[in-house]
Write a protein that binds this DNA or RNA. Structure first.
Lengths: 171, 171
DNA sequence: TATTGTTATACTCTATAACTATA
DNA sequence: TATAGTTATAGAGTATAACAATA
């Protein structure tokens, strides 16, 4: 298992590293032509996603949650009793890859499991008090982070952008 | 080295797998509340990027190029003689991770290296005739792919979306 | 001394197969 | 027979350190 284990809910699992390979040299103002790539939705969506995630990693480091951890906590917070299987299909996570995450959140005392009322195979996930406290702060941070990330975007533009992105990936 | 090696420029390096963990069960129309996550730019940008990349992988499989391979080929195509170092800083790829890609493209006969005119440490990258032919087709596929991906988006909406995404990640 | 390209390697992320216990 | 959760593991993606050749 590559996940760390600690009882301290505020300890972060790993240091967020520098996001990517920035130029080591001083000059080189990048007179490289990337106009075709910049005309593609996929290229721009990926670059934008990575840029937002980089900010997310820095701002969420104090809470010790990566983007995927936050997504899981958010689903649990807003859907108490949700099962692992439901989280997987909602967030497009493969079941074997969720096991370690839930285990880690459990060890940190953020998440608790309760027997499922109807199905003895399943277990409902809930936030502990500590988990709820941490999630409340993390969610507030995530909200305020939006303004930083969308720096040169007006609120209207941000709404437009999110609406268009949803149109792309939603069936 | 985990990269494959083949002399056939049209052979694909690997099969594009199913994109993610869809529900195996029949029902479960996902009445899970994800409204907060869906209010976040990062979440939507990542989901959209993954959706586009999934289509890209399928459509580009005949050419044997992943998104990163296509990006490298595109930069070389539009900037003949570009160095590895320039590609790295342009595409945010770490130098050690580019080595294998260039090696692979070279083995497939798509890319050739020529001595740099001014700097004997560096080597300029160029497309071979086969590389140019393959890239022309791949670029045309990438362009036509845009319409598929942005299915329910009007051309104006697509332009708006790309413009807003650029605002997010561009310094 | 700094940079280009490189090797080796470690860590993280994503994916598949196969198992158990329940349904 | 099918599903929930799990284990083990393979493969791909991303990161750092350190080196030789050249600037």
């Amino acid at each position: 298992m590559s996940q760390h284990s600690t009882a301290n809910a505020l300890r972060r699992p790993r240091v967020p590293r520098k996001t990517a390979a920035r130029s080591d040299s001083v000059g080189e103002p990048s007179d490289i032509d990337t106009s075709f790539l910049e005309s593609l939705l996929g290229y721009n969506a990926r670059r934008a996603a990575l840029a937002v995630i980089a900010v997310f990693l820095r701002r969420m480091a104090p809470y010790g949650v990566r983007p995927v951890d936050f997504s899981v906590l958010s689903v649990v917070a807003h859907n108490p009793g949700v099962t692992s299987r439901q989280i997987c299909s909602t967030l497009d996570i493969l079941p074997p890859n969720l096991v370690g995450m839930v285990k880690s959140l459990q060890k940190r005392g953020l998440v608790v499991r309760k027997p499922h009322p109807n199905d003895r195979r399943a277990q409902g996930l809930h936030l502990s008090d500590a988990g709820q406290t941490l999630y409340n702060e993390a969610q507030a941070t995530a909200s305020s982070l939006e303004r930083d990330v969308a720096g040169r975007l007006t609120p209207d533009e941000l709404n437009t952008l999110i609406g268009l992105l949803r149109k792309v990936y939603r069936t």
